[in-house]
Amino acid sequence: MSDLHSSISWRRPVAEAAVLAALAALPLVSQDYLLLLTQVAVLALFTLSLELLVGQAGILSLGHAAFFGIGAYAAAFLALAGWEEPISGLLIAGGIAGLAGLAMAPLVLRASGLTQLMVTLCLGLMLHEAASRGRDWTGGDDGLSGFLNSPVLGLFEFDLFGVTGYLYALAVLGICFAAFTLMRAAPFGTALRGIRQNPVRMAALGTPVGARLAQAYALSAAMAGLAGALMAETTQSVALEALSFQRSAEVLIVLILGGVGSRYGALIGAAVYVLARDWLSALSPEYWLGWLGLLMMAVVLVAPRGIAGLLARVRLPRARAKTEDRA
């Protein structure tokens, strides 16, 4: 029976830690791309939160920016109110977004399919509208700025070149990615995929399906809130755009581009998207959005399971027998 027990493989965690270490060493070499790469980290974290929702639990959302925005505004409020310690600020903001997710879960989970999409869309739009009207609180269209977080761990000040911001964002992304990886392989993650594949059968195993999905929704909202707070703390500003429909749509595009259901999809998608956007907007300042659209369409047509899916297909025939049970 020992053949059923999975052995611990250190290859992947070691490789992932090596990539993280290399990225962390980047400021020693060049500081040119740190602001851009911080954006990648924020978007990757945000996309990872959507992967938890869409790729694992099978809940659709076109309003995920709601939680990103809640996290961003919460972090800004805290700093403006004098709570300037960044790590606790980040955690509190994530917690607030998670609670908001828990509160909205019953509304979203009541529906399914297109109706569910509509509910998430409407919740997102309502929140955006509320933030736009509540000028006294949110600054309306001007957003919030002029706040400053104290040094990370009391040691590293947020600097002009963005070295601290970059490393801070990288660390938060790394920790969240590790947590996501654990959760995905654990009973909870497996149960979520079971619910996505066959909710009736999960209920027949005794799973309280609604409660599990609500937990997943709250967790995803909290992670999106962390991403929003991370953006607020590293850029020292929050724009109303953080809550916009465009941002909700963008994160869904990034997830599809990277690959739904894959562990690396969110990371790859965010990197490709931000870097392609930067490159194309420099190349063609007028038409870059059109080129970006063409690029996305090309990827989706060539790789319906995203870039991560494409890479796995290239790699899989070789290693199929070994990794099948881990895929």
């Binding site: 654990l182 009973p187 937990q215």
Partner: peptide, 9 residues
């Protein structure tokens, strides 16, 4: 089924 840390396997 709600445990999040140890892999199911």
């Amino acid at each position: 089924s709600a445990r999040m840390l140890r892999p199911l396997g």
